[in-house]
Design a protein around this nucleic acid. Structure first.
Lengths: 143, 143
DNA sequence: AGCTTTCTGAATGTCATTTTCAATTTCTAG
DNA sequence: CTAGAAATTGAAAATGACATTCAGAAAGCT
């Protein structure tokens, strides 16, 4: 089931409405580079759709997160970022504190160890956040 | 070297001043339960020291983080939390999304795998964030 | 003790996010 | 097809955590 379908069904199930703005934002969202902020997407959209308001972009991104096709990221810089979420493929992030570069990584062994930790504490994990902050190879060279 | 000494030396080295407010806040900080917000500590302090202002608590906690005796935590609820930091002993967190319980954990194998991931991407890690969100054993029972 | 520098605390500013509200659009039911 | 209830939109204003300003107070060097 693709992301458009997931969203459409979510909208129907919740008694919400299918508007042209939402569809426009969904397209832009799916076509966008990952790790963008609401503001990023808003300005991207303004090029072709200058009438769509910031609040609508914001509310729609929240909807995407609610229905599971987007993931909200917080790298501690005061801006929430979003990325399209593929249910089957989880990943975490390396964040360069100098140039802002974001690299994704997956490490199944870490995921497994996490589950063990949770089990030891009788926790039922819903989600996790794992981010490594530092200098990317480029920035490490320069300094 | 204990935390009071670390802070005092930091203050001296930077040409800052040793004020009674800072000492009061440091005491409260060291005696406090962990994972508190600026607001938490501010209200705690007001009981015995009603004249200390919010801004002073805020600035002083930032100072603690700067000199390495405090760590800033962000569990994504819009509030920065602090905890006294023991340099030798790093830990990560389990956070109950239902009751807010925070449990600390350490897992050296995860730390090691992290370093491998960073090395693969030529990243030089400065710090990381690893949090597991879910239901604690109590809350899992109830629901 | 004098004097320069830093600090304090109340108030105000900042900034991302969220909410409000009147006008508009969607879509269900007749 | 159409009326009307309900949701949506977008501009503007509100919110809330954090950060800064500034005049008076305190620290601590000489």
């Amino acid at each position: 089931m693709d992301q458009v379908t997931i969203f459409s069904e979510y909208v129907r199930r919740k008694g919400l409405k299918n508007t042209s703005q939402r569809m426009t934002i969904l397209e832009a969202f799916l076509g966008s580079k990952s790790h963008f902020s609401t503001e990023d997407l808003y300005f991207e959209l303004r090029k072709d759709h200058p009438k769509i308001g910031y609040a609508t972009v914001h509310r729609t991104l929240k909807l995407f997160a609610e229905c599971g096709i987007a993931s909200e990221l917080d790298f501690g810089d005061g801006q929430t970022r979003f990325e399209p979420l593929d249910v089957n493929q989880h990943h975490d992030h390396l964040v360069c504190t100098h140039c802002g570069l974001i690299v994704e990584f997956t490490e199944p062994q870490i995921e497994k160890l996490q589950e063990q930790v949770a089990a030891q504490h009788n926790f039922k994990i819903e989600r996790h956040r794992h981010e490594l902050y530092g200098l990317c190879s480029n920035c490490a060279k320069q300094s």
